[in-house]
Design a binder for these strands. Structure first.
Lengths: 347, 347
DNA sequence: TTGAAAGCGCTAACAA
DNA sequence: TTGTTAGCGCTTTCAA
């Protein structure tokens, strides 16, 4: 039992943060801090007259609530941690934009971080975010280190794994099947009469989803009795990487009438290489990508690719989380949002 | 167990997070919480034997410190808020990557958010971040709403404004002169014999730095006695926007032998349009950009552009902040990191 | 509808 | 070097 009979001394003089506190707002409005807190958190639970006084005090003082204190008192912060492989990569940017927008307008803050396709960085990031007592965590993909999974389960909060819907989600999976995407595109190429299709990916041991698209490619090509050739480049995808990759294939005289790239960035690099060498696309070589990035529709020729449901993933994730926060618990565990085959002129 | 009329819909509101606390660690290690706290924050201040016991207790329990509690008690969190116009745009991604990496390995967490080039969103973001009691704030550019500036000053923490070094920084400016960049490129084009140079930018009322590059262009062109033509497109930069912009110029029969785009994305779009129309670059039309993005070196022809010190800005910002956190106070207020003219074949 | 009071989990004076 | 103790600023019982 702590005896705290004496009135609280002006705390600002002691270990001063210099910031306006709820206490000052309460004093100016002539109410208790509980009332101020209520006005901010559940308006409607407070009479209009008091609420008005509180609000004008907030304005006059320029009060900004201290989220650390709030989160600590409430045992859970109003934050959501979001972990993606890369923000440099515009794939995820569309999802994050949508997700952050929706969540933040509902009063939640999203913290995001990128792993650079490393499980170790992912683990560190999850641990760092968990230290904020987030109300939920959103990860990319379904493969994580054992410890990451353990930490996440121990946190007992909603966990969304996005951009994939294969088996084994921790809690909720929202995305689409990369295997099916790989299969679809390959089948399309076969229908168009291509017989020697080469798949090129980058760091596919780290990029699980690219590996799954390669798997889908393998299935389709094998089912058609055609040979499978998968190239896994050792560095991160970049436009600069696509050209040399194609050049290498050419030097090695690999028989090939279609190049299926694990993403549009690589495909654009390959396309540039074709322009440089005067290889006619798609007459001599079909080129296909994945992602439907900004440039895919305007490059020459425009790129045949797969459009993932970037924004839909963000929207669905936000909706799912908000529903969980509101107490709904019997929600779907997996949401397959599908994808679109964008047929353009490159293949 | 008593029946309740309205069961708490949300377990988040329950007291007790179920997380391992420092108290439990202390108990297991047979020490006080202060000792645990010290081991975690200033190792060396604790004897090896105790430190060892504490560390193994931390491991066994899987203890993750609660940053809310820590930040609250310490009056300042170990976070740094970073605000950029866009993460979709790879300009800033390089800076953020470098900055976050450096800061996080020094034990600081960066929170980042994007404003989508809106001052109002910037203000909201700054306010949201300030609610976390960050140890410092990093913004992009030097123009902000009055209230943003007021909030920032009131926070009494280091504030870095990056990517620009013109006048009027709140605290510290780290970047380069966009005006000089615009001038340099334009002078180069003039030296190469170009006489009708058109500048194309996008949403330049919001993108202050693009506007400054346009200003530099204007100065250079005027100084040379040449006409200035500045086009300001109404939507955000995208590859898809560059083609139509050039097409429009062509339709309007604007006299032009060089197109200076406010960034590489627009330039790439224009380049594709040239390919489509069979306009020889640079023979018929020179194309120049800004940013030196991934594709600039590999497109056809490779793009003449300006390389901003993306990573250096991140590095310098981190160094400056870390120095300030360490108590150094007499630091430079502005750091001009310069830029590189990358001459390639498109101009 | 409102207020008083008891912490949330941690850090930092201060003592020992 | 270590422990004791008093809060950090807020939320949430609980009682009025």
């Amino acid at each position: 039992m702590r005896a705290r009979t004496a009135p609280k001394p002006d705390s600002r003089l002691r270990r001063g943060s210099g910031r306006v506190t709820m206490d000052e707002v309460a004093r100016l409005a002539g109410v208790s801090t509980s009332t101020v807190s209520r006005v901010l958190r559940e308006p409607g639970a407070v009479s209009d007259s008091l609420a008005g006084r509180v609000r004008s005090a907030v304005d006059r003082l320029g009060y900004v609530p201290n989220l650390m204190a709030g989160g600590l008192a409430a045992a859970r912060g109003r934050t959501v941690g979001v972990v993606v492989p890369s923000i440099l990569n515009s794939f995820f940017a569309g999802t994050i934009d949508t997700l952050s927008g929706l969540l933040s307008s509902a009063g939640w803050q999203v913290l995001d971080g990128s792993t650079d396709y490393s499980e170790a960085r992912e683990e560190a990031l999850v641990e760092a975010f968990l230290a904020w007592s987030p109300a939920a965590m959103v990860l990319t993909g379904l493969r994580h280190s054992e410890r990451t999974v353990r930490l996440l389960r121990a946190a007992r909060i909603p966990v969304v794994e996005m951009w994939d819907v294969s088996e084994g989600a921790i809690d909720i999976a929202i995305g689409f099947s990369h295997r099916a995407a790989g299969r679809s595109m390959t089948q399309y190429l076969i229908e168009k009469g291509r017989r020697r299709i080469v798949f090129v990916g980058a760091i596919m041991t780290s990029d699980q989803r690219a590996a799954q698209r390669a798997e889908g490619y393998r299935e389709a090509v094998t089912a058609a009795g055609l040979p499978a050739t998968v190239i896994d480049l050792p560095s991160r995808s970049s436009v600069a990487l696509g050209g040399p990759a194609l050049a290498d294939l050419l030097v090695r005289q690999v028989e090939m009438d279609a190049l299926y790239c694990s993403n549009d960035v690589l495909a654009l690099g390959a396309l540039f290489e074709c322009q440089r060498r005067g290889i006619a696309v798609p007459q001599h070589l079909s080129i296909a990508g994945f992602g439907d990035l900004d440039f895919a529709a305007s490059c020459v020729p425009p790129l045949t690719t797969i459009r993932p449901p970037r924004e839909a993933i963000g929207r669905e994730t936000a909706a799912m989380l908000l529903a969980r926060f509101a107490g709904q618990t019997h929600l779907r565990r997996a949401v397959d949002l599908g994808f679109d085959l964008q047929i353009r002129r490159s293949a």
